[in-house]
Amino acid sequence: MRVHYVLNHGGTPASKLADVEIHFEEGLLAGLKLVGCSVWRSKKGDAPTVLVPSRSYATAGGVRYYELLRSSVDGAASAAGNGEDPAAKLAVRRFKDYVRDEYRKIAALPDEPPVPAERSSGKKAGAAR
Rank of each mutant, 00 (worst) to 15 (best):
M1N: 05
V3M: 12
H4T: 11
H4Q: 13
Y5D: 00
V6S: 09
L7F: 00
T12L: 10
P13M: 07
P13F: 06
A14M: 06
S15Q: 14
S15N: 15
K16L: 14
K16S: 04
K16Y: 03
A18R: 02
A18C: 05
D19S: 13
D19H: 12
D19A: 14
E21M: 09
E21N: 12
E21I: 00
E21G: 02
E21C: 05
H23K: 09
F24G: 02
E25N: 14
E25D: 15
E26V: 13
G27F: 07
L28G: 08
L29T: 06
G31V: 10
G31I: 08
L32T: 14
L32H: 13
L32N: 14
K33D: 09
L34E: 02
V35N: 08
G36T: 04
G36E: 05
G36K: 06
C37Q: 06
V39M: 08
R41I: 01
R41P: 00
R41Y: 00
R41E: 15
K43F: 04
K44F: 04
K44Q: 06
G45D: 03
G45Y: 00
D46W: 05
P48K: 05
P48H: 08
P48F: 05
T49N: 09
T49H: 04
T49L: 15
V50W: 07
R55M: 09
R55F: 00
R55H: 10
R55E: 14
Y57L: 12
T59Q: 10
G62K: 08
V63F: 06
R64Q: 14
R64F: 05
Y65E: 14
Y65P: 00
L68N: 09
L69S: 00
V73M: 03
S78L: 11
S78N: 07
S78C: 10
S78M: 13
A79Q: 11
A80L: 05
G81F: 03
G83D: 05
E84Q: 09
E84T: 04
P86V: 05
P86S: 11
A87W: 02
K89W: 00
K89G: 01
K89C: 03
K89T: 00
A91H: 03
A91D: 06
R93Y: 07
R93F: 05
R94Q: 12
F95W: 12
K96V: 02
K96G: 01
Y98L: 15
V99S: 05
D101I: 02
D101A: 15
D101T: 12
E102T: 09
Y103S: 01
Y103C: 01
R104A: 15
I106S: 04
I106Y: 04
A107Q: 12
A108I: 08
A108F: 03
A108P: 07
L109N: 08
L109Q: 15
D111L: 15
D111R: 13
D111W: 07
E112A: 15
V115M: 11
P116V: 06
P116M: 03
P116I: 02
R119Q: 12
R119F: 08
S120E: 10
S120T: 13
S121Y: 07
S121F: 13
G122P: 07
G122H: 03
K123T: 10
K124V: 13
K124Q: 13
K124F: 06
A127R: 12
A127W: 10
A128T: 13
A128M: 08
R129C: 01
